[in-house]
Design a protein around this nucleic acid. Structure first.
Lengths: 331, 331
DNA sequence: CATCCCGCACGAAACGATTCGCTCTCAGCC
DNA sequence: GGCTGAGAGCGAATCGTTTCGTGCGGGATG
């Protein structure tokens, strides 16, 4: 690998000038050309590690995740990488299911210039520290008392949207398969759901609700329980993709026909929704755009280094993709 | 951030000794304890960049991908990261849809210790170069004439498996929705399919085959074309997830009932397969295990540095997950 | 015409580790 | 008792950049 020294030998310029060139600062036209041709000749690329060591900037951002086993998290990585690549910023992935802070430390020891954090609560102390040193953007999971930007789905509105759609079709006895309320997004979707019911004068009935871990199996079981109730709910709303999947499987197994015998509004999984017959009506979040926004916030911070204005929190709206899984109930 | 110098100040040891300790080499017990307590005290973590600059080892592997928009690629990232995390190796993601080699160069300039390459043909020249400098493991896409390990699905067997399952159920007129044969995996699945037919004495009929780009829309259209044939194929085999999705949608739209009026064997998408009613019979590849194997090969190379034995190529078997989408044809 | 800047270039000192020779100690052995 | 060699420590050089403090030449200014 060629170094500045090789370029120096070829051009006669000082290392400082060469450095300037590669950092986009002004250099005499003649020198610029000399450097460019030498660099081309030598197939030169600046050594990132030397750069980072000296300048303490790595042009790398870390994506911090609790796990890597679901589509949401994977899509976040993809979106961030895609948004940052054109700016010449690399992405380093760090995931940790176990409740230790060392993952954040790992990123910090790699001198990331910023962190996109889809974090679970256990990482919070280290993350709070990290946020004092580099820009942090929170995604999906809300954390209090932290100097960080955030990009979130408007979860309450998403929950309300699902409920409202069912209410508009005449449903009053609506089952909910929701997630553990210690997860902020799940809590908010649940709240939105209940508020929409109340606003329409429908009593909130806790026996129709199941708040469970975010797995297919848990969703499956929760849906089975709801189906066993008498009278049965006329509709089920699920607030997470895995739960939706479990619910759909439970309904198929039960012999009930979605969109005929029972109505369903699912969450995320546009592809799945489209492939089912009848197509599933779902609330989808703009995951890719969430990632892109987060990446943009980070990149802006990195490029305009010192100034750190007040944290920005963005809420992106969910969207209802109509299928044929909701029956209109005539009174 | 504390440095070796701070530890030196605290312990009175030389930098060389401290370095030894942090590289797992032997140090007197007394010194070991002194360093450990000083490090704890100072919350010390060695600076990765200084390390890498000097030692030319980064404890980082690059994952090179043509895109980040499908489940296979994302799962590869996840699997590699998960397998490497316990070994203290980080993952850096590089994706590039456009036919330039600079992505590989990016990884090399980040001094990755190895590359897991799910690459498209355009990256090949740079990748070949890279393979001379660091261990490379190819995944999914086969590349000739390269000094690299490989982990692949046994694609021919997978293709044969799908065909055989349909043959065993009495199907003779089997439509194929397959992928562009310039993609090695697609070509092999196709070949396996045809060989299974021939071995069973069934003529290969090109009019029943559609080899198209790997998108839902292309699959949708290909399936529509097959359905328009007279006589209609009694079964369709798809050799890729996106194609499966498109085919299922086309079948639903057509009003034909999968598992009654027509049989289907899909590819990948275990979740989707499970949620459909009736469940879809699919051939699935062990994507996560492919990633894990690739990661292990890389890690082994990294940890036993100098020796580079003959390339290892591993083939992992696909698995047939039975659903209820294949009818038994009685003659 | 002397003066003041401004834009660039330059040499040298970091950045924080690893590594290359050496030196020192001490145990084992004939 | 002297010789040998293994094991561990040490100082100094080094990796490839960035950055700081200067110096220099020339156009604008009064």
């Amino acid at each position: 690998m060629a170094t500045y020294k090789d370029i120096q030998r070829a051009t006669g310029l000082s290392l400082a000038t060469i450095s300037k060139y590669f950092n986009g600062r002004n250099v005499l036209d003649a020198n610029r050309e000399a450097i460019e041709s030498a660099a081309r000749e030598l197939d030169f690329r600046p050594n990132q590690f030397a750069r980072t060591l000296r300048s303490r900037r790595s042009r790398t951002v870390g994506v911090l995740l609790p796990a890597l086993d679901n589509d949401f998290h994977l899509t976040i990585i993809a979106g961030v990488e895609e948004a940052l690549r054109p700016r010449g910023i690399s992405v380093i992935v760090a995931a940790s299911p176990d409740p230790r802070d060392e993952t954040v430390d790992l990123l910090m020891s790699r001198m990331v210039d910023g962190i996109v954090a889809v974090t679970a609560p256990h990482d919070v102390p280290a993350l709070r520290e990290a946020a004092k040193q580099v820009p942090v953007v929170m995604v999906d999971w809300y954390v209090d008392d932290i100097q960080a930007d955030g990009v979130f789905l408007d979860n309450a509105a998403a929950g309300a949207m699902g409920a409202q759609h069912l209410l508009d079709h005449g449903h009053r006895r609506i089952g909910l398969v929701g997630g553990d309320p210690t997860i902020s997004s799940m809590r908010l979707r649940h709240q939105g759901f209940e508020q929409a019911l109340s606003a329409d004068g429908v009593d909130v009935d806790p026996t129709l609700q199941r708040l469970v871990p975010l797995t297919v199996d848990a969703g499956h079981q929760a849906a089975q329980e709801l189906l066993a109730l008498r009278p049965r709910p006329t509709a089920i709303f699920t607030t997470n993709y895995e739960l939706t999947l479990g619910t759909v499987i439970a309904l198929n197994d039960s012999g009930l026909r979605i969109g005929k015998d029972i109505s369903v509004v699912g969450f995320d999984g546009r592809e799945l929704a489209h492939a089912l017959a009848p197509k599933l009506t779902v609330i989808v979040q703009p995951t890719r755009r969430i990632a892109t926004h987060a990446a943009r916030l980070i990149a802006d911070h990195i490029e305009t280094h010192p100034e750190r204005p007040e944290p920005t929190i963005e809420y992106l709206p969910a969207q209802l993709i109509p299928g044929a899984s909701v029956v209109r109930l005539d009174e």
